[in-house]
Computed example of a mutant assay.
Amino acid sequence: MNAGATAITGLRVIADHFDHVLLDQWGTLHEGLAVFPDAHECVVKLHEAGKRILILSNSGKRANSNQRRLTALGLPSDAYDGVLSSGEVTWRGLKAREHGPFAGLGNRCFLISRDGDRSIVDGLDLSVVDDVGDADFVLLAGLDDSAADPEQWRDRLTTAARRKLLMLCANPDLVMFGVNGLVPAPGALAAFYQRLGGRVTFVGKPHAPMFAAALERLEHPRPERILVIGDSLDHDIAGGRAAGMLTLLIGSGAHREILERSSDPSHVIRNVAGAARMPHWTMQHLAW
């Protein structure tokens, strides 16, 4: 592997390099059933070592919802220092309205969310409208499996694009796990809107608002003392590198199929990552 990207077997090997951890959820801590035992032990050891741990998620739901899910999956809230979801960052930005992309959006919102969830607008000075023709902007927080096909949204989003409405996408992920396998995620619908001529601002990994919010939550430590851990070159590693942070790729997550097919996973990462997405370290599973 090229310089700066080293395979390790446990975080204890590099623990002196960082004081804070931004930790991905899906594919790193769990895959929807239970927190991996080695990952659970690693979080405990990190906490005992005095590291501050924020769990980051490209979820359009608020942080409390994600925290409750982690508890149900076996990771108690006292094992880490907090959850920062893209939905939480979006909610706080819309609450403050102090700077872009949240300032100047207007108060009438066409909301697209999963399971009818409205937590991303609860307590905000927003009016949720049923007709995109009445909206000042589009807020994309989530997608039901049955509504994941972007073509279902063509007419409404064509109207929104014609009206030059900004779409605020609170989940940049392109695919998600549905009942019958992978289906398009909110990021794919946002990309579809862009192809229709619409303007989109993304909140979530790898985009800057997510990492700026994490820095603020950690009280602005030096970025080079923060380790971003995740299983996606496109989201976790690219976002961490752009923010000037250390990065570690978990090989058993999003890229495992392509890595498992190769006799030299480091060669695959070197070829597909490029400088902007090259992790500083790699490991197969999260472990101490």
Rank of each mutant, 00 (worst) to 15 (best):
T6P: 01
T9P: 03
T9A: 14
V21C: 07
V21W: 03
L23A: 12
Q25T: 08
W26F: 15
G32C: 04
L33W: 02
D38H: 07
A39L: 13
V43C: 06
K45W: 03
K51F: 04
R52E: 14
I53N: 00
L54E: 12
I55K: 03
S59F: 07
Q67E: 14
R68V: 13
L70R: 10
T71K: 11
L73G: 03
G74M: 04
L75P: 03
D78G: 07
A79H: 10
A79E: 05
D81T: 08
D81Q: 06
G87V: 07
G87T: 07
G87Q: 02
E88I: 10
V89A: 10
G93F: 10
K95C: 12
A96S: 13
R97A: 12
E98C: 04
C109S: 05
I112H: 00
R114T: 12
D115T: 09
R118E: 14
V121D: 04
G123R: 07
L124W: 01
D130F: 04
V132M: 05
V132P: 02
V132D: 01
V132K: 00
A135S: 06
A147R: 14
A148V: 04
T159Q: 13
T159A: 14
L166K: 12
A170M: 07
P172V: 05
L174K: 13
V179P: 09
A185G: 12
R199T: 13
T201A: 14
F202C: 12
V203W: 02
V203Y: 02
P206Y: 01
M210R: 07
F211E: 00
A214L: 10
R222E: 15
R225N: 15
R225I: 13
V228R: 01
I229Y: 00
I237Q: 00
G240H: 10
R241G: 05
R241Q: 13
A242Q: 13
G244Q: 08
T247H: 05
T247M: 06
T247R: 06
S252V: 10
S252G: 11
H255N: 13
L259W: 01
R261K: 13
S266Y: 07
V268C: 08
R270N: 15
N271D: 15
G274I: 13
A275D: 11
A275Y: 02
M278S: 14
P279S: 11
P279A: 11
H280N: 15
T282D: 00
H285F: 11
H285W: 08
L286C: 11
A287W: 02
W288C: 09
